[in-house]
């Protein structure tokens, strides 16, 4: 709620008590709460891990891909990850119901996995990250984007080079 509208309300109606926890609490639209991660749109650039001041975000190599984890008990909800994410895969929702019993302390983690895939061109195993589409002119068509996503990094570079070479 806007400060001025709050002030106006306080002036005209006097102070009031929010019904929470016996009713819902108002939450700002841009409130920075629980972090969500969308593995389908992640480019795997790991900038979020780099800018996280509390070291709450961690990427780790897994057997079947690249695992993303953010621990909400270390996160300071600064919003750096969302601000720096080039694709908007990291997003802070308005969910602030994070109070929990001690038994769930290490369960307050948001996981994500960027799976491995087999390159449709050369057959190598590589991460199925979303391709970086910035600075590609003319923009890729939908089919081209799907093709590009199914390639390994080397074949992606080759694909884009061949595309640039086209008249």
């Amino acid at each position: 709620m806007n400060v001025l509208s709050l002030l106006g309300r306080n002036l005209t109606q006097g102070p009031y008590t929010e019904p929470f926890p016996f009713g819902p609490a108002p939450t700002a639209k841009r409130f920075r709460g629980r972090v969500t991660f969308d593995a389908a749109t992640c480019e795997g650039c790991k900038i979020c891990e780099r800018v996280c001041p509390a070291g709450a975000i961690r990427f780790s190599k897994a057997k079947d891909g690249l695992a993303f984890a953010v621990w909400h008990n270390s996160c300071v909800f600064c919003g750096n990850c969302e601000f720096h994410c080039p694709t908007g895969s990291v997003h802070q929702t308005t969910d602030w119901h994070l109070a929990h019993e001690q038994a769930r302390k290490y369960a307050m983690v948001e996981f994500g996995l960027i799976p491995n895939q087999t390159c449709s061109e050369c057959g190598a195993t590589a991460l199925a990250t979303a391709p970086s589409l910035r600075g590609i002119a003319p923009p890729l068509s939908a089919e081209e984007a799907v093709t590009l996503k199914s390639l390994c990094p080397k074949c992606r570079a080759r694909f884009l080079k061949a595309r640039r070479a086209k008249p």
Partner: peptide, 19 residues
């Protein structure tokens, strides 16, 4: 021994009430 955790930096008042 801690029993309840209220994460946040800082947690909002409603979250503290919840805790």
């Amino acid at each position: 021994p801690v029993d309840v955790n209220v994460p946040g930096c800082p947690p909002r008042p409603q979250a503290i009430i919840e805790g």
